[in-house]
Amino acid sequence: EADPRLIESLSQMLSMGFSDEGGWLTRLLQTKNYDIGAALDTIQY
């Protein structure tokens, strides 16, 4: 079963217009401990 923190973070990022095609966003959020800010910083640079 998916981590509730992942579901919450992923749904927030999907609502911002990101896609999780191929699961890349799920993996990114997992490596950033479900921190949306850290994930966005990684995507920006």
Score class of each variant (00 low, 15 high):
Glu1Ser: 13
Glu1Ile: 13
Glu1Asn: 12
Glu1Trp: 12
Glu1His: 12
Ala2Tyr: 12
Ala2Glu: 11
Ala2Val: 13
Ala2Leu: 13
Ala2Pro: 13
Asp3Tyr: 06
Asp3Trp: 05
Asp3Lys: 05
Asp3Arg: 06
Asp3Phe: 06
Asp3Pro: 07
Asp3Leu: 06
Asp3Met: 05
Asp3Asn: 10
Pro4Glu: 11
Pro4Gly: 09
Pro4Val: 10
Pro4Thr: 11
Pro4Phe: 11
Arg5His: 07
Arg5Ser: 06
Arg5Cys: 07
Arg5Phe: 07
Arg5Gly: 06
Arg5Gln: 09
Leu6Asn: 02
Leu6His: 05
Leu6Pro: 03
Ile7Lys: 12
Ile7Gly: 09
Ile7Glu: 11
Ile7Cys: 10
Ile7Phe: 12
Glu8His: 13
Glu8Gln: 11
Glu8Ile: 12
Glu8Met: 12
Glu8Asp: 11
Glu8Asn: 11
Ser9Lys: 06
Ser9Glu: 02
Leu10Val: 06
Leu10Arg: 06
Leu10Glu: 00
Leu10Phe: 04
Leu10Tyr: 04
Ser11His: 11
Ser11Asn: 13
Ser11Trp: 10
Ser11Thr: 10
Gln12Ala: 14
Gln12Ile: 15
Gln12Thr: 13
Gln12Tyr: 14
Gln12Met: 14
Gln12Leu: 13
Met13His: 00
Met13Pro: 00
Leu14Asp: 03
Leu14Ala: 09
Leu14Met: 11
Leu14Glu: 08
Leu14Ser: 07
Leu14Trp: 06
Ser15Val: 10
Ser15Gly: 13
Ser15Arg: 14
Ser15Pro: 03
Ser15Cys: 10
Met16His: 05
Met16Phe: 09
Met16Tyr: 09
Met16Ile: 06
Met16Ala: 04
Met16Lys: 06
Gly17Cys: 04
Gly17His: 02
Phe18Trp: 09
Phe18Met: 05
Phe18Glu: 01
Phe18Leu: 07
Phe18Ser: 00
Phe18Gly: 01
Ser19Lys: 12
Ser19Cys: 10
Asp20Trp: 02
Asp20Tyr: 02
Asp20Ser: 02
Glu21Phe: 09
Glu21Arg: 09
Gly22Val: 03
Gly22Met: 08
Gly22Thr: 08
Gly23Ser: 05
Gly23Pro: 01
Gly23Glu: 05
Trp24Val: 05
Trp24Glu: 04
Leu25Val: 06
Leu25Pro: 00
Leu25Met: 04
Leu25Ala: 02
Leu25Glu: 00
Thr26Met: 06
Thr26Ala: 08
Thr26Gly: 06
Thr26Pro: 01
Arg27Trp: 08
Arg27Asp: 06
Arg27Glu: 08
Leu28Ile: 07
Leu28Tyr: 03
Leu28Trp: 04
Leu28Asp: 00
Leu28Phe: 04
Leu28His: 02
Leu29Gly: 00
Leu29His: 01
Leu29Phe: 02
Leu29Met: 04
Gln30Lys: 14
Gln30Ile: 15
Gln30Ala: 09
Gln30Asn: 08
Gln30Gly: 07
Thr31Ser: 15
Thr31Ala: 15
Thr31Lys: 13
Thr31Asp: 13
Thr31Pro: 01
Lys32Glu: 07
Lys32Gly: 05
Lys32Leu: 14
Lys32Asn: 09
Asn33Val: 07
Asn33Pro: 02
Asn33Ala: 09
Asn33Glu: 09
Asn33Arg: 08
Asn33Ser: 08
Asn33Ile: 05
Tyr34Val: 01
Tyr34Gln: 02
Tyr34Ala: 03
Tyr34Leu: 04
Tyr34Asp: 00
Asp35Val: 06
Asp35Leu: 05
Asp35Cys: 08
Asp35Asn: 12
Asp35Thr: 03
Ile36Ser: 03
Ile36Pro: 03
Ile36Thr: 06
Ile36Glu: 00
Ile36Lys: 02
Ile36Arg: 02
Ile36Leu: 08
Ile36His: 02
Ile36Asp: 01
Gly37Asp: 14
Gly37Arg: 14
Gly37His: 12
Gly37Tyr: 14
Ala38Val: 08
Ala38Pro: 03
Ala38Asp: 07
Ala38Ser: 09
Ala39Arg: 00
Ala39Cys: 08
Ala39Asn: 01
Ala39Gly: 02
Ala39Val: 15
Ala39His: 01
Leu40Tyr: 07
Leu40Gln: 03
Leu40Pro: 00
Leu40Arg: 04
Leu40His: 03
Leu40Ser: 03
Leu40Asn: 02
Asp41Cys: 15
Asp41Gln: 14
Asp41Glu: 14
Thr42Trp: 15
Thr42Cys: 15
Thr42Ser: 12
Ile43Arg: 03
Ile43Ala: 04
Ile43Asp: 02
Ile43Pro: 02
Ile43Lys: 01
Ile43Ser: 02
Ile43Leu: 12
Ile43Gly: 01
Gln44Met: 14
Gln44Ser: 10
Gln44His: 14
Gln44Gly: 10
Gln44Phe: 15
Gln44Asn: 13
Tyr45Leu: 15
Tyr45Met: 15
Tyr45Ala: 15
Tyr45Gln: 15
Tyr45Thr: 15
Tyr45Trp: 10
